[in-house]
Structure formats: structure tokens, C-alpha cells
């Protein structure tokens, strides 16, 4: 029975993950066709093209977008996870439900809802104007601000959940010991809490950073499709420009980048967890 299950999951991975990836890899070395998606052959031109300054800019901007999103998620998610873990059991599960509820609807629909809130005569501006906080409606929709708001909103739960599980595991006796030994709350945080929750921070950051690199509909919908991110760039190569080899090459490159990120995570985790085990 076990063998069957293991075989099934391997088969599943093979058919739906490995083979498509392999196809992508192979196509990335083909030539572009005018009326076909690709012409069989071998060329490195698709990879060389990646070093063209304009594609470099696309990558750079996407990485910056993903990084800033990760930092904001961390700044918002850490205190939230910390306080969530310090509440009583029932309050915790209540808060957890609040974090999870948005997943019940499609993130695309939530992005459109964000649009309704942010637009010139939308909910946010109406409220701010009514309370006299601003005199002119804020122009948020179709700017970078809107993109960041949408990204952070969509990805925040991916930061909170691993952080929460890290903070929850934290043995509160260490904090007490630190303060008994004369550490200030700040010192305790920096030297005890932070290192012990580091695996959670890294896991959360990766879970936010990697999807943030690939999300294309949030910049398209909330940013007004004015600047290309790597996700929409790949989509365009496959659908609009129909340059499959080049689209495949960008995808392979992106996969390598993400793979490097995960490797880094495992490496750091290995260095962090022995300490955890020793204690």
C-alpha cells in the first residue's frame, strides 16, 4: 500500500512537474519561429538575450518589488505573530481564523476589491475626506503604492503563519532567564527571541519573496500595466509575442534563482537548528 502511494506521488510529480520543466528547459534552447511556437535546433541566443540591459531592468525591478514586499510583510507580520502567540488559546484560534478567512475567496477577486477601496472616489478616499484628514482625494490606484498595498495584503498570511509557529515554539523560560540575568527587553529580543525565531523569519520571507517574484496580475491590475514585471513578461512571451524559446529561457532562469533561494534557506536552517537541538 505504502509503495503504491509513494509511487503515485512520484508519478504525479513526474507527469505534472518534472516533465513540463524538462520541456521548458529543452524549448529554451530552440529558435524562434514566425508561424510556429518554436523551431527545433540549438542556440544559446535566448540566454544571451537575458543579459540585454532592458531585460536586466525587468529582473532588477521585479526583485526590488519582491524584496520591498517581503520587508513590509515582515515588519507587519512579526509583531502580529508575536502578539498572537502570547494570547490565550481561544483568542489565538480566533485570530488564526481571521488570517485564514481571506483564502476562502480567490486572490484575483480580492485584488479587484482592493481596487474599489483605493480608487479616487473609493472607500478609502471617501472616509479620509469625510473626517477631514485630507482635502483632496489621494491618487493611489494605478501607482506603485497601490501595487505594494496589493502585494503586501495578498502575501502577508504567508509571512504570519511560519512566524507564528516559530514564536509559539519559543520557550518563554528563556526570556525570563534573560531578564533574570539582567538583560533589557531590547537585549532579550535581539539576542534571544530573534535568533530563536530566525527559521520562521527565513521561511516566511521565502514564502513571500518567491511568489512575489512571479505574481503578475497585481502589478497589472493595481499598477495599470505600466511597468513590466518578470511574471507578466513571461506571460507576454508565451501569449502575445509567441516567442516560446525566450519565454522558456526566462522561466528557467527564474527557476534557478528560486532554487538558489531555497538552497540558501536550507543552508541557513542547518546552521541555526543545531543550536536549537542542543538547547
Amino acid at each position: 500500500m505504502r509503495k503504491i502511494l509513494v509511487g503515485l506521488s512520484w508519478g504525479w510529480l513526474l507527469v505534472f512537474a518534472l516533465i513540463p520543466l524538462l520541456m521548458l528547459f529543452v524549448v529554451s534552447f530552440f529558435h524562434r519561429g514566425v508561424s510556429e511556437f518554436f523551431v527545433v535546433g540549438f542556440t544559446l541566443e535566448n540566454y544571451i538575450r537575458l543579459f540585454d540591459p532592458i531585460y536586466f531592468t525587468v529582473f532588477f525591478k521585479s526583485v526590488v518589488l519582491a524584496l520591498v514586499t517581503t520587508v513590509f510583510c515582515l515588519l507587519l507580520g512579526y509583531p502580529f505573530a508575536y502578539f498572537m502567540a502570547s494570547y490565550g488559546k481561544s483568542a489565538r484560534s480566533y485570530l488564526m481564523i481571521l488570517v485564514i478567512i481571506p483564502f476562502w475567496t480567490s486572490s484575483l477577486i480580492r485584488t479587484y476589491a482592493t481596487m474599489l477601496i483605493l480608487r479616487t472616489n473609493g472607500l478609502l478616499n471617501t472616509i479620509l475626506l469625510k473626517f477631514g484628514i485630507i482635502s483632496e482625494p489621494l491618487e493611489i490606484l494605478y501607482t506603485e503604492w497601490a501595487v505594494y498595498i496589493g502585494m503586501v495584503y495578498t502575501l502577508l498570511p504567508f509571512m504570519i503563519l511560519p512566524l507564528y509557529s516559530a514564536v509559539e515554539k519559543l520557550d518563554r523560560q528563556y526570556l525570563q532567564a534573560a531578564s533574570d540575568l539582567g538583560a533589557s527587553p531590547w537585549q532579550t529580543f535581539i539576542r534571544v527571541t530573534l535568533p530563536l525565531t530566525l527559521p520562521g523569519i527565513i521561511a516566511g520571507s521565502l514564502l513571500v519573496f518567491l511568489p512575489a517574484l512571479g505574481l503578475f496580475y497585481i502589478p497589472d491590475i493595481l499598477g495599470g500595466a505600466k511597468s513590466l514585471v518578470v511574471g507578466s513578461f513571461i506571460k507576454n512571451q508565451f501569449l502575445a509575442a509567441r516567442n516560446w524559446p525566450f519565454g522558456a529561457a526566462i522561466s528557467v532562469f527564474l527557476c534557478l534563482m528560486m532554487g538558489a533561494g531555497i538552497w540558501l534557506y536550507l543552508w541557513v536552517k542547518k546552521r541555526v537548528s543545531p543550536e536549537e537541538a542542543r538547547s
Binding site: 532592458i54 525591478k61 500595466a225 505600466k226 511597468s227 513590466l228 513578461f233 509575442a241
Partner: peptide, 11 residues
């Protein structure tokens, strides 16, 4: 056209 369109949207 495509090349220029991409450049337009990258800036």
C-alpha cells in the same frame, strides 16, 4: 514593434 513595446513598458 514588440521590442519597442517592451522597452516602453520597462522604463
Amino acid at each position: 514593434y514588440e521590442r519597442y513595446w517592451e522597452e516602453l513598458k520597462v522604463q
